[in-house]
Design a protein around this nucleic acid. Structure first.
Lengths: 193, 193
DNA sequence: ACAGTTTCTTGTCATTTGGCAAGTGGAATG
DNA sequence: CATTCCACTTGCCAAATGACAAGAAACTGT
């Protein structure tokens, strides 16, 4: 069948049953992205809520000097969306770009709302996606305050090793809140151990 | 009437009409907190979703050396909840404590779910609360990466000056991701201007 | 009002990190 | 094959911040 992995993903949150997952899945549109394609561009209102089936993406913004700052990474079986632009229908301050060829399933804001108000289980699913992203960001925020750059690096290497296949080190550096030179030095120290 | 400001707050998100706001408000329970009372204690499952009408609260966790780290501040007309513990029904890693005497309106998880599934406008309200908190945290995360400690301090002073009435400087320091000594020096520099 | 505690400031010094520039290596291009 | 480009590394120095400790100021409870 065309949608085989999407229903499984919908069920994985624990809020959606098998029958409902099949029904919900029919409303999604398959999207493909070539490496470097943009899913969202700065200044535009986000048009999609994407469940990523294959590949990886990166969200980034610019600081006041015009340097790219990576604000997030997305890997397969994750929801990809810019919360403020998508839900509040306002222009995005961020870009989201494919780090590799990607495949995913997409909903517009209207489609998502329709499902949200129509299918209680999808409401729970949608809420759990939001809650999970929010909680993960809280953890990241706390770790940037309490941990050293080296600890944050080690932690990322442990928990998301696949990122190092997809992303450049300078992308990872700005995600960790350090310069690429510092990351390079940290990696050097790290090899000694 | 007993609930006078609560319906106004519910309406302020733009998703709840006047009639619905009154209906929704009847499900909330009034809660009072004395200064230093805990709304949530580390290790326990959060039992409440609070709309704060008066006063201020602080969320904090501990780093590996046992130092308090402020993870968030809440002031009046804000929703107060620990997203992970409240929505996932798991023990909290954070504490939430009143910085002053407080008054608010509270919902249990069951009550919130009931309203959520019963009243479409409340679904929108609940989602907008989550989205707003999530987006604010994204902004804070980006600013800790792109801005200097002094810029973050100046920004907080501009946007949330009332915090400086409620919170101690060391609470604000750890919220900004610096030590209290550093904050003290930054404030000294700041006075020169 | 007093003693005791906590918070805040300040000094000194060490450490981390950034800024900049040069150099290396690999991949892409013509 | 040579050239160019880009990512990454490295060295040097400056700036920001942390760690620790001492002292001043503010708050607390009796």
């Amino acid at each position: 069948m065309m949608h085989d992995r999407l229903p499984l993903f919908l069920q994985s949150s624990g809020h959606v049953g098998q029958r409902e997952a099949g029904e919900i899945a029919t409303h999604f549109t398959r999207k493909e992205f070539a490496k470097h394609d943009f899913f969202l561009k700065e200044g535009r209102v986000s048009q999609g809520y994407l469940l990523l089936e294959e590949g990886a993406m990166r969200a980034f913004a610019y600081d006041t000097e015009g340097n790219e700052v990576t604000t997030g990474f997305f890997t397969k079986n994750q929801a990809v969306f810019e919360v403020s632009s998508f839900f509040n229908r306002v222009p995005s301050k961020e870009n989201i770009q494919a780090l590799s060829d990607c495949v995913g399933w997409c909903l517009t804001f209207e489609q998502l709302n329709h499902l949200f108000h129509t299918i209680p289980a999808f409401r729970e699913f949608g809420r759990s996606v939001l809650v999970k992203g929010y909680a993960a960001l809280k953890d990241r925020m706390l770790s940037t305050i309490t941990e050293t750059a080296e600890e944050r690096y080690a932690h990322l290497l442990e928990t998301k090793p696949e990122l190092f296949h997809f992303a450049q080190l300078r992308h990872i550096a700005s995600y960790l809140g350090i310069t690429d030179s510092s990351l390079s030095r940290i990696r050097k120290e790290f090899l000694k151990k």
